[in-house]
Design a protein around this nucleic acid. Sequence first.
DNA 1: CCGGATCCGAAAAGATACTG
DNA 2: CAGTATCTTTTCGGATCCGG
Lengths: 143, 143
Amino acid sequence: MQNLDDQPCLIARSLSLVGDAWSLLIMRDAHAGLTRFDEFRKSLGIAPTILTRRLAALTEDGLLEKRRYSERPPRDDYVLTRAGLDLLPVLFAIGAWGRKHRSTKGVTRFFDAEKGSEIDPVVIDSATGAPIGTRQIRIVPPG
Amino acid sequence: MQNLDDQPCLIARSLSLVGDAWSLLIMRDAHAGLTRFDEFRKSLGIAPTILTRRLAALTEDGLLEKRRYSERPPRDDYVLTRAGLDLLPVLFAIGAWGRKHRSTKGVTRFFDAEKGSEIDPVVIDSATGAPIGTRQIRIVPPG
DNA sequence: CCGGATCCGAAAAGATACTG
DNA sequence: CAGTATCTTTTCGGATCCGG
């Protein structure tokens, strides 16, 4: 895939980081509390080489941060940065779409881990408060 | 990538369709009104063989639908289905994330093509009306 | 045991030319 | 205009090995 970083569209630029299933699944697991290499590997069933690459890319791009949790032996784990935390609405929007259109085999549900309450995400237009529904959009480049 | 279709998590199942940059960019362009093979090809700068595969997959998965617009010669174009239309909030959530964390080089803006008003998407918890912020989540499988 | 690095075959992407 | 055929290059993903 070509370099999306230089495109004017924010969706395209964002996809250069996040337009990949593994990366988004890693971010999902990070939001669920996983931090270590082996936790991700076992949860995802991902080959270690791929996981190394994805974690490095996500770290480089500022969605995850390496944190040393042991000096001897040297051990790092991966924690969400601010930008990584802000990805949660994207994950929820994807989940909400799946609930509507991919729920033939039973559905997972999302809970606030602290409060215990279930989360039912919806994307709205903050200007009007109305849910984003069916409409044609116009994407306007900068300048 | 392994088969995500059979996983319990809705995010994973959705990503089997949409966890790919090309597919999401095609869907973005479809929401902007493009319908024809060559429109997508030129807009995205994508190789025709890749575009063919992606359009076939998106059609197979029910996000796009082939529609015959000419009988002689036979010509089809691609229009959004209900499930495809419902993907707009996901695209907006990605764009909103990019606006916050990837806007160093100027930002695109989203407008309602009909009403002309700008759209500023935000993901909220419909139960409380509160924006999805920073929190740890718990993902609960069915059953 | 944990967090990778190396190596290699398989798969997908990309460019280009061509066809009905 | 909407693809297919063919070729080359890049990336993926699994197995295995390594250093602490």
